[in-house]
């Protein structure tokens, strides 16, 4: 903590920066709305959801880095942000490894 004090007073990207992030978020929202009409699932099942989630992750990253000032924050804040998603991934992965190996959520003829 001591090595990298959060200079919160300096920790922002200024007015244009905020508007820029905002624009990205709006574009992302509109894009995700319309991309949901494209039949990407014909490429592989779940491609639509994958794209939507990729956009959501991008939006989240921008909100966290700039609106929540993680970009200027000490390592510990980065760590806690990453760790929470890591633990979420543990919960998803280890629950789903059960369901998928039971064949319940698997496409079958």
């Amino acid at each position: 903590m001591s090595d990298k004090h959060m200079e919160t007073g300096e920790g922002h990207i200024g007015y244009p920066g905020y508007i820029g992030v905002f624009t990205i978020l709006v574009v992302g929202t509109i894009f995700t709305y319309f991309s949901s009409f494209w039949d990407l699932d014909s490429i592989f099942p779940g491609a639509n959801t994958l794209l939507a989630l990729a956009i959501a992750f991008t939006k989240m990253t921008f909100v966290m880095l700039f609106f929540m000032h993680v970009y200027w924050s000490p390592r510990l804040i980065w760590l806690s942000a990453v760790a929470s998603f890591f633990w979420l991934a543990i919960m998803f992965a280890y629950t789903m490894q059960d369901y998928f190996t039971r064949g319940l959520g698997v496409f079958s003829v």
């Binding site: 929202t29 039949d39 989630l53 959501a56 989240m60």
Partner: peptide, 21 residues
């Protein structure tokens, strides 16, 4: 912002499923 992020995920996951069908 956290509450906003939750919604950013809820929106595609709840509203935009299988619309291409």
């Amino acid at each position: 912002h956290f509450v906003d992020i939750v919604w950013i995920f809820l929106f595609p996951l709840l509203y935009l499923l299988g619309r291409h069908f």
